[in-house]
Design a protein around this nucleic acid. Sequence first.
DNA 1: TAATCTGGCCAC
DNA 2: AAACGTGGCCAGATTA
Length: 553
Amino acid sequence: MFVVIEPGSEPGSLRLVDVDETGGVLADTMVEREDASSAVQIRETESPRWVFARTSELYPQLLARGIRLGRSHDLALCRVILRRSTTTSGPLHDAPLDEWDAPREAPRDDGLLSGLGVAGSMRDRADAVAELQRQLATIQGATSPWRLRRLLAAESCGAMIACEIHADGLPWRRDVHNRLLTEALGPRPVFGGRPATLEQLANSIRAALAAPALNPDSPAELLRALRAAGLSVNSTSKWELRGIEHPVIEPLLRYKSLSRLMTANGWAWLDEWVHDGRFRPDYIVAGVVTGRWATDGGGALQLPKQVRPAVIADDGWTFVVADAAQLEPRIVAAMAGDVRMAEAGHSKDLYQGLVDAGTVDTRAHAKVAMLGALYGSTTGESARLMPRLMRDYPRATGLVEAAARAGERGEQVTTWLGRSSPPPADSWRAMMRAAAQVSATPAQERAARSARREWGRFTRNFVAQGTAAEWALCWLAELRHRLRSMGEASSRPHLVYFLHDEVIIHTPTEHADETAAAVQKAADAAGRGLFGDFPIDFPLGVTITRSYAEAKP
DNA sequence: TAATCTGGCCAC
DNA sequence: AAACGTGGCCAGATTA
């Protein structure tokens, strides 16, 4: 049973439309503002699949009223998948773009339209029931409906989880963060400018380079000053500076590190992004083409190790931090049905498994070779080690190689559950056509070859990263389901952070062990859900800790 | 002055 | 040692 839920004509009111599994409308009800919460709660006891035009536009309002739902279908997110998938066909696949394809409207924060604002937007005037019917028909006619259903359910559940994480927030101690900044940088400057430690380092750099007016924040100025001081460098990046013998190097590298801390996660960041002891990421579900989540503001995709000590659980609570070990190699092994690589991953460390199998001699080599296969490197150590991987694991390596070749031919590639890569741009095809002409110049041929290989690296990585992302979505959904039955509503373990293959759960201390067990069970269930009986393991690194900085990565 | 580009660095 | 995939975000530099 589906229930389409959308804002009614009055602020706070709701329209609920019951739709059966084939798209037939059973009932169409308007609910007044005062009755909205209880009406939704009552319907929730039947565990329907709630259908949102866009989860991010309505679900936060439900969360604010204390409502959390079990299952959902996000029309806008699902349309993107269904339209682009190589496993679907029919009207939805071929129709001209309409408002359901439009990118998300920028969230408005002016207060004028908040709450009722979404009721007046274009999207909600669009016919959600008709769109659901189109999507159901498209799923029905897909090559593998069960895979798509699983993907769409996980994607939609992810959309709810993204809202819930935002609402709950990641515990963040301002006092700890502030102390950390002061110890590293000196006191916060009252009128802006550089804090004391940073200014001292800037002066050391100027002295060592005999450049009294140098602004070390300007790469161009800095490069000129380094060269004038006799250093033969091509850039000011730290990997190139590291290893050079010169008095400027030590203060310069320290300056870079501290300057980064200051500009990315300094006092200004703290003021803007941490309120009431919580950091609230704005996740963009499927914001990455591969299906990974992106984020908007706050740099939630890159919480530096330097500031993680500020992430501390509430009193009486703790974190369960879990990350999937060597996720992408395991995903590729399972997709390819590579029993031998799956066997190497039977231990907790797949890279060590490759060493034990005699493929390579060290764990570091195993990792470099594997990442080279996943990213498509063509030079250096990983290219040298790759042939051993191809020899011992022809199925797994063959899968990513085939994805690369398909991309080079301009074809789309598709994940295990049915998310497809975008076709290359018209300009890409034009480039290939131009290079194929007899009149093509060597420069054109070179550029085309380079662009072709680049697109091949993208599609190569797409199948692995994209399928890993859908495994992670299934993991999240399974985990959320398990957490929902634990404890009381006010003291229930809940997700507070997610990043690609890692989660943080904030849990009352007494539920920590149970939560740690649940997160691994969820990973096992996600693996079975995707790959059935194929003998692939998805071990996690799990840490129970009150401080994120203490979690072993 | 605002928008866009560049170099650099953080995360997985 | 990076190259080689996906992102976000900053300050400075350049362009409109």
